[in-house]
Simulated assay, not measured.
Amino acid sequence: MLRYRYPIFIALALFVVGLALTAALQDRHYILLSLVLLAAALFPLFVRLERRPIESRELVLLAVLSAVAAVSRIPFAALPSVQPVSAIVILSAYVFGAEAGLIIGAMAALVSNLYFGQGPWTPWQMFSWGMVGLTAGWLRNTRWMRSKIGMMAFGFIWGFLFGWIMNIWYIISLPDAFSWGLVAAAYVSSFYFDLAHALSNVIFLSILSGSWIKVLERFRKKYGLL
């Protein structure tokens, strides 16, 4: 994993640059920037898989999991911040690794916004859910993540981190001059939404973790995927 760390950090740097450009451009060219950020998200996967032949069924698996994560947002559209996307990304990364988690998280945001609406917030959601998958994959072999309680705690923490990252886009996009009072107001006003996301992650992980991990592990071992 160490030899892939630098390419991953390069991809993260590309994400940060892209996010800054998106905030500056606001509503202009955000779809193009989303595609650029998606390419940056795919970069670590390309680096990892170019060293061995890649099978079409592995790409199909990533596409299917991304689609499942994206579609899972729709039934909960009426409940702000309540969605199983983060839980699905975490479980996928737990079984298939950090690179797969990064791809699934980023693509889930891009694809689901075809229904919810694309905008300058899309790259930030791609980055946030990509980081959920990436960190879950990095920590998957730790005692913390191998415990169901630990995995639920991980999901709870990321419920808040996700909202805090999205708050950065919100603050930068405001026409008012920057102030720490504005920052404090933004984070305080988002608390209940972040809490709803964190609690929903705990609930969905508690429900899905057992069956999903068994099914995904069976696919991974049977077909030698990723």
Rank of each mutant, 00 (worst) to 15 (best):
P80W: 12
I104P: 01
I149W: 13
S179A: 08
A185P: 03
F204M: 11
V89S: 04
W158H: 07
S128A: 15
R52W: 14
A77H: 15
L174C: 08
A77F: 15
V132G: 00
V68K: 08
I74E: 04
G130R: 02
R218G: 04
G133R: 05
A11N: 00
M126R: 04
S189G: 06
G181I: 05
V36K: 03
Y115S: 00
S147G: 08
R3T: 04
L37S: 04
A184F: 13
R28P: 00
W129C: 01
L65Y: 06
T135R: 03
F178H: 00
M145R: 06
L62P: 08
F204S: 08
V36Y: 06
T22M: 00
A87H: 06
F191C: 01
S92N: 06
A67I: 09
A63T: 09
M166T: 11
Y192T: 09
Y30F: 15
R218V: 04
A63Y: 04
G210Q: 13
A153L: 15
N113I: 04
A198N: 11
L62D: 03
R52H: 09
A24D: 08
M145W: 10
S206P: 00
L25N: 03
A69R: 09
F219V: 14
F154Y: 15
S56Y: 12
Y115V: 12
I54C: 14
L33Y: 06
A153R: 14
R3S: 08
L14C: 09
L195I: 10
F43P: 01
F15E: 01
A77L: 14
F204E: 09
L12Y: 05
L79A: 06
G224V: 05
Y223E: 14
I207C: 03
Y30R: 01
R146N: 13
G18F: 07
G155S: 11
G137R: 09
L12P: 02
A69S: 12
I213M: 05
W124M: 01
E55F: 08
Y192Q: 13
M126K: 05
A198K: 11
A40Y: 00
L65Q: 07
